[in-house]
Computed example of a mutant assay.
Amino acid sequence: MTQASTEGIGPEDFRATLGRFASGVTIITAREPDGTAHGMTASAFVSVSLNPPLILVSVDKRAHMHSVLLGSDVTQFGVSILAHDQIHLSNHFAGRPGPEEAVPWREQAGFPVLGGTVASVVCRKQQVLDGGDHTLFLGLITSTEYADREPLLYFGSRYGTLAP
């Protein structure tokens, strides 16, 4: 057990504790200034509000996606919620890339998202908030698609699926 501190807990305790929270796995997508689709794996995805329909993604300030999303011409981003058989995509967009041709890019409402997922949303960038070493991007959902597939879960630094 870690003692309380006015500075908060250390990064090791933070990871060890919050790694015990099971989450889904998402890929955040955006367009580079040259129009190329770019993606990043993220488990920091939260539904914020039903009315209006808002979500939030948290992006490390050191990540390339951070500079892409902060671009003045970037008004949208996408979030694809991965299915149980898409671990390879999570790894691909987390810096362990496989063949780019294996990425099932598709368009939703004219915006790049991934195919074969549990769900995907396209959002209008609504607000940008400082979150320490991360930036929080609040998005208004403008398009959504979903399928009856089993989700990919992440818990304790491992992938998993729902129990039967």
Rank of each mutant, 00 (worst) to 15 (best):
G110Q: 13
G115N: 15
R96N: 08
H84S: 13
L82P: 03
A94D: 13
G110Y: 10
L69D: 12
R62T: 12
G39F: 03
A42L: 02
I28T: 02
F93C: 14
D148L: 03
R106Y: 02
R158W: 00
L140G: 12
A109R: 07
E100I: 04
H88E: 14
Q3M: 08
E150P: 10
E107C: 04
R96Q: 14
A83D: 02
H38L: 04
R62P: 01
V48W: 04
H92G: 10
A102M: 14
F93E: 14
N91S: 15
G78F: 03
L70M: 15
V25T: 07
G110C: 08
K61P: 02
S43F: 03
L69T: 05
V57L: 01
G139P: 04
F21Q: 08
Q108T: 11
L70E: 15
D13F: 04
L70D: 12
M40D: 11
G131Q: 06
I55C: 10
K61R: 05
R106Q: 09
E12I: 05
W105H: 09
G139E: 12
L136K: 02
H92N: 06
S23F: 01
T117N: 05
V113Q: 07
I141G: 05
H88D: 14
G132V: 01
L18D: 13
A22E: 09
G116D: 10
T41A: 13
S157C: 00
N91F: 04
H64V: 11
E32A: 13
G115I: 03
S120W: 01
R62L: 10
S43C: 01
A102Y: 08
E7M: 08
L129G: 12
T135G: 10
S5W: 04
I27F: 07
S90F: 02
S143W: 01
G19K: 02
P151C: 06
K61Y: 02
L18R: 09
P104V: 09
